[in-house]
Design a protein around this nucleic acid. Sequence first.
DNA 1: CCATCTGAAACTGTATACTGTTTGGGGGTG
DNA 2: CACCCCCAAACAGTATACAGTTTCAGATGG
Lengths: 226, 226
Amino acid sequence: MSAPRQNHRIRIYEDIRARIQRGEIRRDDRLVDTAIAAERGVSRMPVREALMQLASEGYLEGTSRGFTLPNMEPERIREVFVLRRLLEPYAAASAAQSCDAQAIAVMGQAVEDAAATLVSDDVTEFYRASEVFRNTWLGAVPNTELRQTILRYMAQVQSVRFATMRDPLAHQIIVDGQRGLLEAFRRHDALAASERMLRFVMQGEESFARLNAEARPESLQSKRAG
Amino acid sequence: MSAPRQNHRIRIYEDIRARIQRGEIRRDDRLVDTAIAAERGVSRMPVREALMQLASEGYLEGTSRGFTLPNMEPERIREVFVLRRLLEPYAAASAAQSCDAQAIAVMGQAVEDAAATLVSDDVTEFYRASEVFRNTWLGAVPNTELRQTILRYMAQVQSVRFATMRDPLAHQIIVDGQRGLLEAFRRHDALAASERMLRFVMQGEESFARLNAEARPESLQSKRAG
DNA sequence: CCATCTGAAACTGTATACTGTTTGGGGGTG
DNA sequence: CACCCCCAAACAGTATACAGTTTCAGATGG
């Protein structure tokens, strides 16, 4: 945020990570150190090290032919939802207790922006506003280890989140959930925030299950067969 | 485990990580790529990359003068205990449901070995047996993401764990906790495993708080002053 | 005897070069 | 038309070199 005056490796690392989080890297893009190095006028080494760090953190997946977004099996998504159910209600509760007026104002604006996309249907704007909302309440979580853990696994499922947000029903559910959470944060009501967050995560899991079943109905059959 | 036939970077990475987990790296050791490279007869680059990956995963901390064990502030340890309370009861419950006879046998042996060190006072053996116990039940957790998350933060607090184990009272408490957990795993009793694990973690937190207060009583005063 | 300055040593960061290994495609064959 | 083989390009891994930065010991002055 405040210090982009670092060395090449860190600058490139943060740059690529930001692009992943903004959904600018597509599933079939291959990130190769030599190409990125040539673009930016540096050597392979800092780019290689940035890419390998992103891979070790789960943002990318190293193949024998460049780096790509991780291939997210539905099972792995379900596993992350278990983690979310266990951690995020508590995280939301502690954020509700310690968030300040400025954070609440930012979240209020973000929820307004997200709600506006229900009409405009601007998925990119919806995604941006949701990121602001999430990063703001997460920033209010005092427990750094907890915050980092949540950020880590959320980064890994970014692409799935982005896909879910394109669904109209999920869109409505997410905005409703954000409104409920915002209300709890405004009242500094830890218990309400915890309950709202648990519902929010479980609704997200339902949306994912529904979309996954629609997208590949054969997966159900293979489960029945197996 | 099965494939040490990798490239230099991965081999060195796994080697150093194993040494950290065995407690062979001391707090005042400084790991420098050039020195390790010379020892092993390779160039700096694979060693540097291994060390940086270990640092990004929290096993090490990069300074301007080599890599060292992370400097664990008590506050950070307390944060990890919050994570443990949230995740490990659930993890133990799911391990109790899915662990097989072989895993139970290994854990039984590990608990016996750990109990024997109550008499022999062999801290290194106690540490080894505890690692076997933990890794075995963690291996029975079906949720890979959950397992990886737990492994990640446990690695970061290794040095503190090692210090706690030197305390006679904590030694007894840990062995008792392991016996209780083993009993729950043997009966495949998920609820008991969850409750035992919650108690185990909270007792660990109490032990840490006690030892920390004994080691630096001035920290309490500074808190009162601030 | 203590503070401060200074330069060499010790490291980190980056560039460049070279060596394996994998891959995808062109050309040949059935 | 399908299959296989081989090779050149693409890419990962490693080595070496060098530049920039930090640290510390010893020299210098008060």
